[in-house]
Design a protein around this nucleic acid. Sequence first.
DNA 1: TTGAAATGGTACAATTTCGGTCCTATTATT
DNA 2: AATAATAGGACCGAAATTGTACCATTTCAA
Lengths: 154, 154
Amino acid sequence: MSFFSRKMDYALLVLSHLHNNPDGSSAREISSKFSISRPFLANIMKILCHNGYLSSHRGVHGGYALIRKPENISLSDIMDSLDETFHLTDCSKESEKQTCKARTFCPIRTGMSGVHDRIRTILKDVTLAEILDPVKTGNSLQFGLELVSHGSIK
Amino acid sequence: MSFFSRKMDYALLVLSHLHNNPDGSSAREISSKFSISRPFLANIMKILCHNGYLSSHRGVHGGYALIRKPENISLSDIMDSLDETFHLTDCSKESEKQTCKARTFCPIRTGMSGVHDRIRTILKDVTLAEILDPVKTGNSLQFGLELVSHGSIK
DNA sequence: TTGAAATGGTACAATTTCGGTCCTATTATT
DNA sequence: AATAATAGGACCGAAATTGTACCATTTCAA
Ligand code: FES
Ligand code: FES
């Protein structure tokens, strides 16, 4: 199993490609460039459009264009839009009023919620901008720490 | 979709329960305590035993007991043992020699590998011990920071 | 010595999710 | 009018997940 579904992966490809092509692009173009099934990709782009990431233009020279700023799009946002909201376990989803009978005496509930939060923090922090250009943005913290710990900053 | 499968969740419950019951316990006991299907749980315990987490003892008063130290069991370890090794996307699994045609010009490959590493780091760092007692171990950093930021440390 | 309670191993069935398709309508350009 | 695109669905097949069944083996105790 992969953490990100194909849908998610393709959505990221679409958003990235459209960022690199500010004049927009069609589902056909993108699907052929990345060798992805056209109708499947089209479905995803519809969703992205519907959720305000893309503008759409019908007709012969139509297509989609990115309208939200990459810095304002977190991985968490995209997952939510795709109806793939992050949950660590079945027990951690609040929908469907908790049926877990162990809830009151579960030995791992508290600990797991810590892990849940840590991963969710990453998903909320990492933006499309960071995916597109890992050095400039978020990861700089990691690099910075590494440099310090290696004594490379004079 | 949940990040952790039921198998994984149940495995954690088993390991935790056995840690709290050093004299051991049977699949029957645990399945009834947590209202989990007995045969399914038994399968998981077999795997855990086979991978060196548990010792088994057959016969009337048999059962399983935890033999690895909780501090030495990371979430990543358990996932591997359960054949659920973590991968961020299909593209990030090295098995089945990469078939992704976009690999050479993929706009998100580098950025994604950063995210992959961050999550994997968490999975490798968090141990069963931390799940069992979140305050004592790993999360203390978080709590510490929070206290500081709230000015509670005099 | 016999039976019950446990694990060991493996194969199988049911269910759900995922990945992908298809069809029709609408809009815009030429 | 023809073509190329999106819009919005319903739909389907395959694979993974989840759970079951069966039978063998070991151990203990009555
Ligand atoms: S297993 Fe449901 S709360 Fe822990
Ligand atoms: S999608 Fe395959 S390497 Fe990026």
